[in-house]
């Protein structure tokens, strides 16, 4: 096991720069999620850590050892690829064994490791099947077994769950985290799904346009997003972002007024749906656009006079129909303010 450090990592393909000067410190035993929309450079970063791509500039260190120029195999990493790629013409057993083909283990040790992995992932009955004869979840388990038999320095997972259905994804999410905690191995997990990121990561690194937007624990990312991008990307339903202006200790956007102590100027107000409330009067007039009943709560989507849409969480008992007028107001103690250039400029103290 080891910590991984990226120093000024840069990777370009021709004229396109996929990753521009990334610094990242992954501590030993940590579960780090690289989160971002497609094309943000997260998979390229992972490929550089794996050694599948050679960085255009910068260094990659495993525990202070520079591995930038090493081929993937000598880095002793294990990787699970998108939709749990396996060799299609090999049985599960042969696929798992391929992981150890370049190791100098004794045959007994080899067998013991494979048996352990097979037992841990409960795939004993799949060993003689071809990948084409397995379900998506089974392939995922075999791919994971193939990764852990190597007892690698680090696990690298590239959107391994993206091709699975929602229920299976939820099961496997917990299984992967459980396995990682039991093995205590450094893990880098790439995804574009913020729910996966929030539920699985010890820390999340949010990337956009080849740059690191923010790195922190899930609650840091959720409570204090450092930029508008992170604020809008993380959270479901997403944070409401309202453009307006601060003047005289008051945020003003059309008819909406929120008392906030901040420097005057144009800003964006961010407020989570659960901190936006229906008021009897003296608030922003809106009409109901849609109601999404989730059972435990209801997401109310409303439109203001300027046709901006806002989301708020209300009681499941909430009665209302599309087109009904109502008034809403945010909880001033829970509002964030963003400046387009500087990022987060005001956050509630907690």
């Amino acid at each position: 096991m080891a910590g991984i450090r990226l120093e000024q990592l840069k990777k370009s393909f021709g004229t396109f720069t996929a990753v521009q000067g990334l610094d990242l410190d992954i501590t030993d035993g940590e579960f780090l999620v690289l989160l971002g929309p497609s094309g943000c450079g997260k998979t390229t970063t992972l490929n550089c850590i794996a050694g599948l791509e050679t960085p255009s500039a910068g260094r990659i260190l495993f525990d202070d050892r520079d591995v930038t120029g090493d081929p993937p195999h000598s880095r002793n990493i294990a990787m699970v690829f998108q939709s749990a790629l396996l060799y299609p013409h090999m049985t599960a057993r042969a696929n798992i064994e391929a992981s150890l083909r370049r190791s100098d283990l004794t045959p007994e040790e080899r067998r013991r490791r494979i048996d352990d992995a097979v037992a841990m992932l409960e795939i004993g009955d799949l060993l003689d099947k071809l990948p084409s004869a397995m379900s998506g979840g089974q392939r995922q388990r075999v791919a994971t077994a193939k990764a852990i038999v190597r007892q690698p320095t680090a696990f690298l997972l590239d959107e391994p769950l993206s091709a699975l259905d929602a229920a299976l994804r939820m099961t496997l999410r917990a299984e992967i985290v459980n396995l990682q905690k039991r093995l205590g191995s450094t893990t880098v997990f790439v995804t574009h799904d913020q729910v996966e990121a929030m539920t699985m990561g010890d820390r999340i690194a949010v990337m956009n346009g080849g740059r690191l937007e923010q790195i922190g624990t899930p609650s840091e990312i959720y409570e204090r997003p450092q930029s508008l991008f992170v604020a809008g990307f993380v959270g479901s339903p997403p944070m409401n972002l309202i453009q307006g202006e601060v003047a005289d200790g008051m945020f003003v956007a059309g008819e909406l007024k929120v008392p906030l102590a901040a420097a005057p100027g144009p800003v964006t107000l961010g407020v989570r749906p659960q901190h936006l409330h229906v008021r009897a009067e003296g608030a922003l007039p809106c009409t109901i656009f849609a109601l999404e009943r989730l059972g435990r709560e209801t997401v109310l989507i409303v439109e203001d006079a300027a046709r901006n849409r806002l989301r708020l969480l209300v009681d499941p008992e909430f009665q209302g129909r599309v087109g009904d007028p109502l008034q809403i107001a945010p909880d001033p103690a829970r509002c964030l303010l963003f400046d387009g250039a500087k990022g987060l400029i005001h956050a509630p103290r907690n």
Binding site: N47, A50, G51, L52, P71, P72, H73, S74, I77, A78, M79, F81, L85, L86, Y87, P88, H89, A98, S99, R101, R102
Partner: peptide, 28 residues
């Protein structure tokens, strides 16, 4: 064919071994 080369590189197959042991059997 699926992108098996990346898998093969992680498993330590050389380019030539990848062709002989992975790609050719896969593409038979």
């Amino acid at each position: 064919l699926p992108p098996v080369e990346r898998l093969a590189r992680v498993d330590g197959y050389t380019r030539f071994e990848t062709l002989v042991f992975i790609v050719i059997p896969l593409a038979r």
